[in-house]
Design a protein around this nucleic acid. Sequence first.
DNA 1: CACAAAGATGAACGATGTTCAATATAAAAA
DNA 2: TTTTTATATTGAACATCGTTCATCTTTGTG
Lengths: 198, 198
Amino acid sequence: MAAKRQTKKEDLKARLIVAGTELIREQGLKNLRARDIAERAGSALGGLYTVFDDLDGLILHVNSGTLKRLETALNAAISPSTNIEETFLSLSLAYLRFALAERNLWSALFEHRMPEGVSVPEWHLAEHAFLIGLIATPLSRQMPDASCDEVAIRARTFFAAIHGVLSLSLEGRFIGITTEALEHEITVLAGILARSRS
Amino acid sequence: MAAKRQTKKEDLKARLIVAGTELIREQGLKNLRARDIAERAGSALGGLYTVFDDLDGLILHVNSGTLKRLETALNAAISPSTNIEETFLSLSLAYLRFALAERNLWSALFEHRMPEGVSVPEWHLAEHAFLIGLIATPLSRQMPDASCDEVAIRARTFFAAIHGVLSLSLEGRFIGITTEALEHEITVLAGILARSRS
DNA sequence: CACAAAGATGAACGATGTTCAATATAAAAA
DNA sequence: TTTTTATATTGAACATCGTTCATCTTTGTG
């Protein structure tokens, strides 16, 4: 039973991530406390630091899980053979629904900042790629003369546009609008982008 | 000389805001410390709390100043009689230049969150209105059948779209792109939005 | 069972935002 | 001017946070 220690450590890691996820979901990233996480995970305070370098490390893993669930949600929203406008609309509305349903976890994806000088690790940056891919696939049919990189950059731009609308709304800055109005604006913007010829 | 106390308090307030602005500019909102602000403003730590309720109050005033400078920069970028596409493009690029030149202060505008349950005060929400107005004016000519509210909401959507592209880039999340590519994407998106018919 | 190695623990540390009794200063009164 | 009162300024003290590490427990081995 030489693997027991390894197993226990992985159990602890999993429990810590679950606890962190629940706490962010319930109270938001800003109210996340190391002591609360440890308590909910049933470990001592120090246990957290035997698994992760610091709180940021745990938050990255929580965000990683959130991204995976977002990927599942978005993949379920599209059917491969429909046209671009339909696809953009479905993706945008699925993104809206996910953000509304998991507000705090979704916010944590973008609110979290690494400490001064430290940059987001490569493995976590790569996890965002599917978002670009989801948009790039239908978009490439609309940009037949563009290179792969150009399509990827444009896909990123389109995602950022939709994301910006959602983000600014849910942040509660500016004048708030109703969910119906937000859904309408997202629909309109998705249409504009899908029909656009740069 | 019954006004001397009032004057001194206003002096202190101004010095604190200047100190906060400089510190955010140099080190970012995340590294802002009450002790550093007080020291740079030449007051005791407690002095900060005789002027503002808490650090959030000071940050709101710093953001207020940043918004005023942004307003000046954007107003200088547009000439009233040019067409919509030209106006959107000028505004977008001026916004890009402002964000690049004042990265940390610009980030603070959107990174800052009020504590649990407290919402941004009305006077500060109202300060964002000019951004909507700047876009709504040319946009209303393109949406002749729409109500004022509808135009304002659409203006907000268009601003959010451009802002999202900038935001996602400067956050360093996703794959980073060069400043030239960013400028190009902003240009393309501004054109798409200006020519859009919903 | 005894012993070594690794893991878990939580008191302690330094840093932070905020408060408030004590002090210093300005305004008013004598 | 001198005294008295009201206000403003101060910074030590407090509560809370992330993080560390000496200590204790548990696990694996001969």
